[in-house]
Design a protein around this nucleic acid. Structure first.
Length: 420
DNA sequence: TCTGGGGTCCTAGGACCC
DNA sequence: TCTGGGGTCCTAGGACCC
């Protein structure tokens, strides 16, 4: 059996933990640049605020209902996430951290009649230790545990823990529309609806061969999982990433090459740091720059280029030299740039980097240098030592007008409680 | 005025090998 | 007259996830 722990309205709940005044109030958390809605408390959902809605479109709702608005505070959410995962890991030896607010649990060691009890225990513990409410779904497969999780959120009488079993399975699947099933996106939804398949029960009972033809192996697995045949095990291995992306939408339009290149330089630095953190190197780097596609008037320009390094690397300096050279060729004057990013891929562990007999770079020396830079920056703060190409003034800085304190990761932001 | 950021997996088709 | 059969690797693009 599998379990799925999912934090309720995670970002919104994190904000609430340290600010009890927000209890029962509608809360919305915005994406970078305070652009889109990415998390909503239940109260905000009830007001009809949609996921992904641009903030400027709901300004009147915000005023009318006194909605509390927050910029994303990833330092806070990341730290709270770690706490939740540690608590789960204390109870269940085999867990797969699936996202910042979700973890799959391998529950095979428990008897069926114990499962709900285990779920309730974990839920209580997380609530007590972190103040965060979670929902727990249990089922024969990951997909069914997702379904159970969905039910536990919808139906308050289950108090956050629900299990899909052979006895209740069909009854439940009958009431769930296919788009709620893990793996059904907008395209598959449209296709399946067209063929009259609208409920999870219908999907479960549809012909495997037909599904395979039209929705590929991914669809076939999905249907099997609904039938209780597990196709996705707990993945304990992959904590190292296969691609790493750093990208931002600019707070203000960027026009000059210098501003654009200092942003690309910064993304390169971050990508290289992330590579080094997981002890790996990348063969490829991809750069993209783009103007604002939402603007109706004004010239548009989007470009995307790939670079292949001679030898897989995580050396910031080396990566910068290739990437900035390529950027120079991509940049065109006279455009208002809105977004840019760097992606690295072809990632391999450092121990498996293939050398080249004609390589003239002193890699031992540069790796020592970068090691020292990392140490200094860890001690004194990010970018204490930086490459000149990153620039010093960030004209393209993010807009974050409603940032909450970093309650758990910065001494100055520690809560003070006055007891009179 | 204003629209996020970060990932994974699968497939088809091309280029190449013997 | 008649032009095989079996592979691998890589990449771009699509679909999906949170």
């Amino acid at each position: 059996m599998y379990g799925l722990v999912d934090c309720n309205n995670f970002y919104a709940s994190c904000e609430r933990v340290f600010n009890p005044k927000l209890n029962k109030k509608p809360i919305v958390v915005l994406s970078n640049n305070d652009g889109c809605v990415i998390a909503r408390s239940n109260e905000a959902k009830k007001l009809g605020i949609k996921m992904g809605e641009p903030a400027f479109k709901i300004t009147s709702l915000i005023k009318k209902y006194n909605i509390e608005i927050f910029s994303t505070n990833f330092a806070l959410y990341g730290d709270m996430s770690q706490r939740v995962m540690n608590i789960i890991a204390d109870t269940i030896p085999q867990i797969e951290i699936y996202s910042i607010d979700e973890a799959f649990l391998d529950l095979h060691q428990f008897k069926n009649e114990e499962l709900l009890k285990v779920g309730r225990y974990i839920r209580e513990k997380i609530l007590k230790y972190t103040g965060l409410p979670v929902s727990i779904g249990i089922g024969k497969t990951k997909t069914l545990s997702k379904v159970a999780n969905h039910v536990s959120k919808k139906e308050p009488s289950y108090k956050g823990v629900f299990m899909v079993e052979d006895s209740n399975q069909d009854n439940i699947l009958e009431k769930i529309p296919i788009e709620k099933i893990w793996g059904v996106g907008s395209k598959s939804k449209k296709f399946l609806y067209y063929h009259g398949i609208k409920t999870a029960k219908q999907l479960k009972e549809s012909k495997l061969k037909w599904i395979r033809t039209h929705l590929s192996i991914t669809g076939e697995r999905m249907v099997k999982e609904l039938q209780g045949i597990s196709c996705h095990g707990i993945d304990l291995s992959s904590n190292s990433k296969k691609s790493i992306c750093t990208s931002r939408t600019f707070g203000k339009m960027v026009t000059s090459y210098n501003d654009l290149s200092s942003s690309i330089a910064m993304y390169t630095v971050r990508c290289a740091e992330k590579l080094r953190m997981q002890h790996s190197s990348a063969m490829l780097a991809h750069i993209f720059i783009s103007t604002n596609p939402f603007r109706k008037n004004g010239k548009q320009y989007i470009n995307y280029k790939t670079i292949k390094f001679p030898i897989a690397t995580h050396d910031t300096g080396e990566m910068l030299s290739y990437i900035l050279k390529k950027l120079k060729a991509m940049y065109k004057e006279g455009y208002k740039y809105k977004k840019a990013g760097v992606i690295v891929s072809g990632i391999i562990p450092n121990s498996q980097v293939q050398c080249n007999i004609f390589d003239s770079v002193n890699r031992l020396k540069s790796s020592k240098l970068i090691g020292v830079v990392d140490k200094i920056n860890k001690k004194l703060g990010r970018d204490s030592i930086r490459y000149a190409s990153q620039g010093y003034y960030r004209k393209w800085k993010l807009k974050q007008e409603r940032l909450s304190p970093c309650y758990t990761t910065r001494w100055e932001d520690l809560l003070t409680i006055n007891i009179d």
